[in-house]
């Protein structure tokens, strides 16, 4: 009997020890406090990508290019992330964005408003120099088969400043005789960043009947939705593609350095190809402001005031 009790006691002790295998805690004194102050960013050339996608997508696409430019030019270049198209434009105007990478519609606005000047344009990932917008709906939406069917429907566009996601489709609708007033509702992607994706998600969710996006967005959201359930109703005519513009007042030598660095990217070089592919482009070409007159013309046609 005594043996049994000893055995039981030993077992209990063993189990108790076995149950306490946690690491010892680290003593931390929380009473000592300090004020947190964020140091200001060092002076650098700021590079911003119009927030048509989320900041993380923007970062992933352009951080290599930014690093390349800094390395190539020897300049300090930092990518910044404005939350909205308007903020982007304002920051160009405020001089907070030195190099703006935007769609041609925004460019013509900032060129018009703040004197920004285009110095490069990109070749799209598919090799085209221009791009277009797309009108999408749910694949199972039997009420919409053509542009004419979009009349009276709920429309979600990317942003009033979006080219492929608003301006180009609006031009197509108006050419097709559908005025903005003919839609039951026109909405824009909410919140900051990720605006293109939000249009697809809103149509996918069925909240809106049609959506307008720039071509290539469906590939971006392939991992978020089943794009088989999204149908492209129509595509707009092609317009000039995305453009690099320097804010007014930026030193021309700096612009030239950056322009040259961009132009020296060769898609046939493996290293450069990785940079360009990450940015979803095939190459960068020099350009002039006049190349975007078609966009200015379209804006006028659809009644958009570049000042607003």
């Amino acid at each position: 009997m005594a043996k049994c009790m000893h055995l039981l006691a030993a077992l209990t002790l063993l189990l108790t020890l076995a149950c306490n295998q946690e690491e010892p805690p680290l003593k931390v004194d929380l009473s000592r406090r300090e004020k947190t102050v964020v140091a200001p960013d060092a002076d650098a050339i700021t590079y911003a990508y119009l927030p048509q996608y989320s900041h993380t997508v923007s970062y992933r696409r352009h951080h290599r290019l930014v690093a390349y430019l800094a390395r190539k030019t020897g300049l300090k270049i930092r990518q910044i992330f404005p939350d909205t198209f308007d903020e982007h434009m304002q920051m160009v105007g405020q001089g907070k964005i030195d190099i703006s990478y935007s769609n041609p519609f925004i460019y013509v606005k900032i060129a018009h408003r703040y004197g920004a000047r285009a110095f490069c344009r990109i070749v799209e990932a598919d090799g085209r120099r221009d791009f277009r917008g797309q009108i999408i709906c749910r694949a199972d939406n039997s009420a919409i088969h053509s542009i004419a069917d979009c009349r009276g429907k709920r429309w979600i566009a990317v942003d009033p400043g979006s080219a492929g996601g608003y301006l180009y489709p609006l031009g197509l609708f108006m050419v097709s005789g559908i005025m903005p007033a003919d839609f039951r509702e026109i909405a824009f992607s909410p919140g900051p960043g990720g605006k293109q994706e939000k249009v697809v998600l809103a149509v996918y969710a069925g909240k809106y009947d049609i959506g307008t996006i720039r071509e290539g967005t469906l590939e971006v959201v392939r991992d978020k939705v089943n794009i088989g359930e999204i149908r492209v109703v129509a595509s707009t005519p092609r317009y000039p593609g995305w453009v690099y513009a320097a804010r007014a007042g930026l030193t021309p030598a700096v612009v030239e350095k950056i322009k040259n660095a961009m132009l020296s990217l060769d898609y046939d070089k493996a290293e450069d190809r990785r940079i360009l592919a990450a940015a979803s482009m095939r190459g960068i070409l020099p350009c002039e402001d006049s190349e975007f007159d078609s966009v200015r013309s379209l804006a006028r046609r659809v009644g958009i005031d570049l000042e607003r």
């Binding site: 003593k27 931390v28 929380l30």
Partner: peptide, 28 residues
């Protein structure tokens, strides 16, 4: 609310490549 505890900053350092670090702290 009243400043950041100085010792807390380095109480649980994340090593390069580490995805998460958990540390038991005793504040007293």
């Amino acid at each position: 609310s009243d400043g950041f505890p100085v010792e807390l900053k380095n109480a649980n350092r994340l090593k390069p490549g580490e995805k998460i670090s958990v540390r038991l702290l005793d504040t007293g």
